[in-house]
Design a binder for these strands. Structure first.
Length: 580
RNA sequence: GCGGCCGUGGUCUAGUCUGGUCUAGGACGUUGGCCUUCCAAGCCAACUACCCGAGUUCAAAUCCCGGCGGCCGCACCA
């Protein structure tokens, strides 16, 4: 059995995750997390919060709706770019992008044309399938966003978000204010996202509903290379597959992020910084360094908003290098679009170091002359004049002696200018955005696959201590002579003290150890006959199967240190034979 | 969406070609009991399955058709 199949078999059998709706035959692209899967996923999310929110300066987390009104996606560009017009050959059933096909076959620029207009061109020019010369069907729109109605009125169209990011952009103004108007500001979100994938496959790697973990780092484009964390990570070496290396068919290079920025392989230091943070995070999930690499998206692959995108890929059995995160430089695309579409000014004010004095020109329509001269048109003319740039108007008047406004000729007697000095204390700008974006479900699978090991025909899930769904399993050696009563007391105590702990009394002790190994429980605590004599128990290590003894009274404190990774297993209690 | 292969208890599978002793077998698992002094021990008992729907037939897990799902390839994947 392939590793992938083994991991999925274990996941189903022991309750990490499985395909949803199985009793109704299943629907691809949806998964259900079971008892251990839920905890594993939460642990991964929390570890991500540590790396990408809590250990970053001025980074915070929010939660926004999954359904958003269509206006948001009009502004974000998803309605336009997430929708592909598709046309299929009726004979060979090959599918094409309708716009690309029409442009290719006719040379006509179809940008902005409606579906019916494209259909007309296909009919008029009698276009055929370039492959088999068969007749073509109707142009259809395929949008990867799930569409729905908000409320009872058909006109209120909403879409399920295909990324969490728009929630952060839409709320930027208020959050920026709450965070006392400091940049850089990191706004993070973990939440469900939906994409109506055409053919989801490969278990969890392409889902229709999945959890995304994103941070939008909002910063001043002039400060994009002023990244405080960069210094600490600048010597972090990464395996980087640039776009040009891919085009030449060459393998990735190993390079420090500092060099990569210097050689302009990475656009800026903030982007580079997150690559290093990401690498460190993914290693913490138990992925070996040689199974992590960074791949730059090729120009045609990049999203409509991206200046540069670097994917983080991990090596997975059966499907090779798989994208689990993207790092995109979204520039000011999103904020400027939302400013334009909503009419709300979300620009940020920045003080200049020393106030500047600039000369300003103000245009004043002379109503006393415009009124009599243009009568009915006067109001319109004045309105238009007020929208015009005073400097430009003055230049035109000076050079040609008149200016045309609303189809009428105005001369210098109609317009007065006033010049005054203004003290400029700063300027307004649209911030830029750097975005690390993770797929949580792929991380769960990645952690499972990289933890999966076999030993003597048994499965051991060597999950990092921080990820293990259950931390401690408590056992009586045998189910009699008062041992279960003592183990139950220990179990209750550990439960009370906040450990994720289970108590297993059924079956032989070996069988119970095996069960615990399968779900990756790092430590086992066994009450045996020696416990009755000296109040010690054994502690068993999942990975080495070795044991140490410890007094029950010290157990909780020592385990706490172990799970905080302050001590290793060998520092727990005493060697088995040292206590007499 | 197309093509190929496939779908049997919680898991892995025998059986399907060649319809009928299949009232569906095995292994693992789980539960209860007995036993048990450290790595899936043993014994007893219990539990749970032919993906869904139509069809052919005296008779369908088995043959045919459709649907759903899985794997592989193509297409798709800002």
């Amino acid at each position: 059995m392939a590793l992938y199949d083994k991991v999925m078999e274990l996941s189903k059998r022991r309750g990490f995750l499985w395909p949803s709706f199985e009793i109704y035959g299943g629907t691809s692209g949806f998964i259900t997390y079971g008892p251990y899967g839920v905890i594993l996923k939460h642990n991964i999310e929390n570890l991500w919060r540590d790396f990408f929110i809590y250990k970053q300066e001025n980074f915070i987390e929010i939660e926004t709706p999954i359904i958003m009104p269509s206006a948001v996606f009009e502004a974000s560009g998803h309605l336009e770019h997430f929708t592909d017009p598709i046309i299929a050959c009726l004979k060979c059933e090959k599918r094409y992008r309708a716009d690309h096909l029409i442009e290719e076959l006719t040379g006509v620029n179809v940008e902005g044309l409606s579906i019916s207009e494209m259909n007309e061109i296909v009919k008029e020019k009698d276009l055929k399938c370039p492959d088999c010369k068969g007749a073509l069907g109707e142009v259809e729109l395929f949008n990867l966003m799930f569409k729905t109605n908000i409320g009872a009125y058909k006109g209120d169209v909403g879409y399920a978000r295909p990324e969490a990011a728009q929630g952060m952009f839409v709320e930027f103004k208020r959050i920026f204010n709450i965070m006392r108007e400091k940049l850089p500001l990191g706004i993070a979100q973990i939440g469900k996202t939906l994409r109506n994938e055409i053919s989801p496959r490969k278990g969890v790697t392409r889902l229709r509903e999945f959890t995304i973990m994103e941070v939008e780092v909002i910063l001043d484009p002039e400060e994009i290379n002023n990244c405080p964390g960069f210094e600490k990570y600048k010597n972090t070496s990464i395996s980087l597959l640039t776009a040009s290396l891919q085009q030449k068919g060459e393998p990735p290079v190993n390079i420090t992020i500092e060099q990569a920025v210097e050689e302009r392989l990475l656009d800026n230091k903030w982007l580079a910084y997150f690559l290093a943070v990401s690498k460190s995070f993914v290693k913490t999930l138990g992925v070996a360094e040689d199974k992590i690499r960074f791949r730059e998206q090729l120009p045609h692959e990049k999203a409509h908003y991206s200046k540069q995108t670097i994917d983080l890929q991990v090596y997975l059995d059966g499907q090779g290098w798989t994208e689990i995160a993207g790092h995109a430089y979204r520039t000011d695309w999103d904020l400027s679009r939302h400013i334009k579409f909503s009419g709300v000014d979300m620009r940020v004010f920045k003080k200049t170091e020393a106030p500047l004095t600039v000369k300003k020109l103000v245009l004043k329509p002379n109503k006393a002359t415009i009124g009599p001269d243009f009568q009915k048109d006067a109001g319109k003319i004045i309105g238009e004049l007020n929208k015009m740039d005073p400097v430009e108007v003055k230049n035109k008047l000076d050079s040609q002696g008149f200016i045309e406004v609303a189809g009428r000729r105005l001369t210098s007697k109609h317009i007065e200018f006033e010049e005054y000095e203004e003290v400029v204390k700063g300027k307004k700008f649209i911030p830029h955005v750097i975005e690390p974006s993770y797929g949580a479900d792929r991380l769960v699978y990645t952690a499972l696959e990289h933890a999966y090991t076999e030993k003597e025909g048994r499965v051991i899930l060597k999950l990092p201590v921080k990820l293990a769904p259950i931390q401690v399993m408590v056992y009586p050696l045998v189910e009699r002579d008062g041992l279960p009563e003592i183990s139950n007391q220990i179990y209750m105590e550990l439960l009370e003290k906040g450990f994720r702990v289970e108590h297993d009394v059924s079956g032989s002790i070996g069988r119970r150890y095996a069960r615990a190994d399968e779900i990756g429980v790092p430590l086992g605590v066994t009450v045996d006959y020696q416990t009755l004599e000296d109040k010690t128990v054994t502690v068993r290590d999942r990975d080495s199967w070795s044991q140490r003894r410890i007094f029950i009274s010290e157990l909780a404190d020592i385990l706490k240190q172990f799970f905080e990774e302050k001590i290793s297993f060998d520092q727990i209690g005493y060697p088995v034979n040292k206590i007499e």
